[in-house]
Structures are given as C-alpha cells and as structure tokens.
C-alpha cells in the first residue's frame, strides 16, 4: 500500500485510475494498453510538475514520507546484505533508535551507524521514532572507536526528529553523550562521511554528524530545530510551520549555499521513496568515490582539515 502526502494527491488520482482500468481490462479482456500508456505519461508529467517547484515545507514532508527508505534499507542495499549488526553501548542497554555495524561496501569493510525509524506503528514505537537516548550516542561512539582501531572508514546515516527528551535521557546525560560524540568524531583518525537521508534535527543529528564530508539527500532537511517547534517558539503556534521552514533555510540547496554541508545527492524526480534502487545506487557511488579520495590523505592532515572546516563556519561582523 502506497502512501501519499497531501500535495501528492494528483498522483494518487492517476494511480487509482490506472488501477481501475487494469481491473476492467482483466475482467472484460478488452485491451487497454493504450489508455494505460497515456495515463502513465500523464502521471510522469504530473510528478514532474509537482517536484520541479517544491517548497521547503514540502521537502520537510518528503523527508518524513512513510515510504522513504530508512537507515537499515540503505545499509542492506549498499552492502548487498553483507552486514553484521552490532549492539549495545556496553554500559546501560542497546538503543533500538541507533543501529550500526560492519558492512562490506564494494569489497571493503565500512562501519555504518545511523538512526533508525520504524515502518509501522509497532516498529515506530520499538525504534522510539528514531529518537536516540544517551546510550544510542554512546553505542555510536563505541562503534566509531572500534572502526578507528582497525582503520575502517565510517559512514553515518542521519534520520532523526531529535534526541529523545525523556526523564531517563536527562538522568543519563543526553547532553554529555551528544557533546562527547561531537568532540570525539572531530578527532577520529579514519575517514568519516555523514549522509543526511531524512530528518536532521539539531543536536540529535549532529551527535553523529561530524565528518570529512557531510552530505544531504536532496529532499532531506537539517537545522537547529524542526519547523513546527520553531513556529511554536517564535509565533506561539504550530500554524506557521511553513514560514518557519522558509526562514530556517533548512533545505539541501540552502545548506550547501551556507557551506554547512559539502554536497547534495540528487534524488530522482518523484523522490527517494518512488525510486529506492536509484537512490541506493547514487549514495553507493558517492560513498565509494569519496571514501577512496579521503583514504588517500594522511590521517593527521585529514583530521586537521576536518577541524578547519568546522572552525570556518559562522558569519559575523566587526573585529
């Protein structure tokens, strides 16, 4: 069962029509291939029209599309199933909102770490909606250090509405866990590539988001706060989320323009959720190429460059 966002409604209308024609064709035996072909053509055009002028808020909605591939989908596709998932922070528990482990990418081992969302109500709860607790960040750090020890490059997949703001999370030091990760990621002696595949909300995203290359998928978002929460704080109501999405400059194009991310990976027209194999292929290409490039650099220089990149960030006036 496909899901449609409100602005994807015209696509649904055509899809329903195609389904109906197919049904009639099956029951009556009348050849409707011409009609279906026309409808398919119309659909392609409709998708093109909708996707050529997406607003920031529409991209935020796309980043949360229930059919959009999640971290484990990427990992399984990229490694062709050659993946060993590793669990636990060796301290408190295993955080289901943060997954990670060894995988083979193009014949070489890579450490994958990412936030994981669920595909249905039960799984969404199991994954805590992709909102890690401190032990999730500490599990991530454990895997980063493990990768560093064996000189294995790291790929993180970012997809979170934020770090979990719960009572136990505060008791166990959510702030410290994220802070430690940011600091330690800056110093890792192996190549680190961070890919924002869906939602990149604030510290919860940055907690696995410090890398030599930080790259966004075209229809993902990355900012200091979600448009809804920004709207609540600045306009005291959720109704201004579209304005907030504009104001925050959270799209991949804006973030690249601000030099906060290094690259944008284009999504096929219609979005990653309609073309899973294509987006997996694009991400795989990007990773293989960039890991190879980064591995050529001297580790000390690579880490120093990573420091410099983040130190350069920010705009101010005066002296």
């Amino acid at each position: 069962m496909e899901n449609y966002l409100a602005f994807e409604e015209p696509i649904k209308v055509i899809d329903d029509e195609i389904l109906k024609v197919r049904e009639v064709e099956e029951n009556s035996g009348v050849d409707s291939s011409k009609l279906i072909k026309d409808l398919e053509k119309k659909k392609t055009q409709t998708i093109k029209d909708i996707f050529k002028a997406l607003t920031p808020w529409q991209r935020v909605q796309l980043s949360r599309h229930p059919d959009r591939p999640y971290s484990l989908d990427y990992i399984n596709a990229l490694t062709e199933g050659n993946f060993v998932e590793l669990h636990g922070d060796r301290n408190v528990k295993d955080d289901k909102a943060m997954v990670g482990g060894f995988g083979q990418l193009n014949g070489k081992t890579v450490m994958f770490v990412g936030q994981q969302k669920g595909i249905n109500t039960k799984m969404r709860q199991f994954r805590n909606f992709g909102m890690p607790n401190p032990e999730g960040y500490r599990k991530a750090l454990r895997l980063f250090k493990l990768a560093e020890k064996f000189n294995i490059p790291i790929v993180t997949l970012i997809d979170t509405p934020g770090a979990f703001p719960g009572l136990e999370a505060e008791e166990r030091g959510q702030g410290e866990a994220i802070a430690r990760n940011i600091y330690e990621m800056m110093r890792l002696k192996v190549p680190v590539i961070c890919v924002i595949i869906g939602e990149g909300a604030s510290g919860g995203a940055l907690g696995i988001g410090v890398g030599d290359k930080v790259v966004m998928l075209e229809n993902s978002w990355y900012s200091v706060i979600s448009p809804e929460n920004c709207s609540t704080i600045l306009w005291r109501s959720w109704d201004y989320k579209e304005q907030a999405a504009d104001a925050l400059k959270l799209t991949s194009t804006d973030m690249k323009g601000l030099k906060i991310v290094d690259d944008v990976i284009k999504e096929p027209i219609g979005g990653a959720h309609r073309h899973r194999e294509e987006i997996f292929a694009s991400v795989k290409d990007y990773l293989i190429k960039n890991i190879e490039r980064l591995q050529k650099l001297d580790p000390e220089k690579r880490t120093a460059k990573r420091h410099e990149k983040f130190i350069e960030m920010g705009e101010y006036k005066g002296r």
Binding site: Y183, V210, V224, I225, L248, I260, M313
Partner: peptide, 23 residues
C-alpha cells in the same frame, strides 16, 4: 541554547567550539 535566528549556522557552532577545544 542555540540561537534560532541563525539556524544551521548556530548548530554548527557546537561543532566549531568542539574543534577548538580539541586543539
């Protein structure tokens, strides 16, 4: 916390200061 009016750039200050602390 972070200054909302600088959005992504204010988020990156967390990383920037961490990089300096590393130095």
């Amino acid at each position: 916390g972070a200054r909302m009016m600088e959005a992504g750039l204010s988020l990156m200050q967390m990383a920037k200061v961490s990089a300096k602390l590393s130095q």
